[in-house]
Design a binder for these strands. Structure first.
Lengths: 153, 153
DNA sequence: CTGCCTGCAAACTCTTTGCACGAAT
DNA sequence: ATTCGTGCAAAGAGTTTGCAGGCAG
């Protein structure tokens, strides 16, 4: 899946939902897909403004749910008071997140069993799964002992 | 594990940490252990005030981390902007949470493999696990279709 | 043209904090 | 007597929202 595909997909999603294709929404899309890592709403705002300085914080916050809904962005909650996002070039596979509390970096790894597990467990309670995630919080032992974290900026 | 054991454990934990055993802390403890379900900080405040009207919101928020640290309370983040807590009478097993977005209820189920999975995955990134959780978000199909959720108050 | 979108700033929610008083040890 | 703990209210952080004007369809 290339960025061109994604851009086209985004335009179609907007149209199909009766939403307008505005310069701001496109700028936010471009900014999001230029990150090669997880980013926060604030980081996205800063970067989107480099593409189109007129983008406001409100529009970023209004666009994020749309892009998550369209499955172009994944939303990740690591238990902090803000959320992380990541462009989803390759659609689909369930992933487990490992969040390092020392370097604040998010690592991801495929966890194909999760979907099965989610629906098995949900059905035990008479429910239908919407989403499932495994999140592992970890620390860097070396950083704790030596004050150096190889992932730390 | 009875509530008496837990109360004693709490007093010991406070003493061992050089923290004082105050009426407010005890009132918050009692309130927390009278819930037979998950509760929020605000619900805990309301209930603690029934035990001791002098308890303030600040003290509840200052006590929660202590009780979580002492393992008498479990903190659960379901991706909303506030946290849930639950008294932990039976210590220990890793659990997966199923959060129903229709009735906002949290169901739990043992997930003994989680600890193993967390350390296996963490070590792939050179990290040491601190905690791990599986969280499944689900909905009540019957509520969606018929407007009735058997778990809904 | 119509009405969805936008930027701005204020509002909101949950949580944390500074301060002076009060209570546990 | 010390010092930690407390209540109060204000601050804080991230996010949401009301409004008047702007732009896509």
């Amino acid at each position: 899946m290339t960025i061109e595909n994604c851009r086209e997909r985004f335009r179609e999603f907007l149209s199909n939902c009766g939403l307008r294709v505005t310069n701001q929404r496109l700028a936010i899309f471009e900014a999001a897909f230029e990150f090669d890592r997880h980013f926060t709403a604030e980081e996205l705002l800063d970067h989107a403004r480099e593409v189109d300085p007129s983008v406001s914080r409100a529009t970023v916050y209004r666009s994020l749910p749309i892009m998550v809904e369209s499955a172009l962005l994944r939303e990740i909650d690591v238990g902090k008071d803000f959320k992380y996002y990541r462009a989803e070039l390759a659609q689909g596979n369930q992933q487990a997140q490992v969040f390092c509390i020392d370097c604040e970096k998010i690592f991801e790894i495929d966890a194909p069993f999760m979907e099965w597990y989610g629906s098995t467990v949900s059905s035990k309670f008479g429910l239908v799964p919407v989403s499932q995630r495994i999140q592992i919080t970890a620390q860097c032992q070396r950083f704790r002992e030596e004050g150096v974290c190889k992932n730390r900026p």
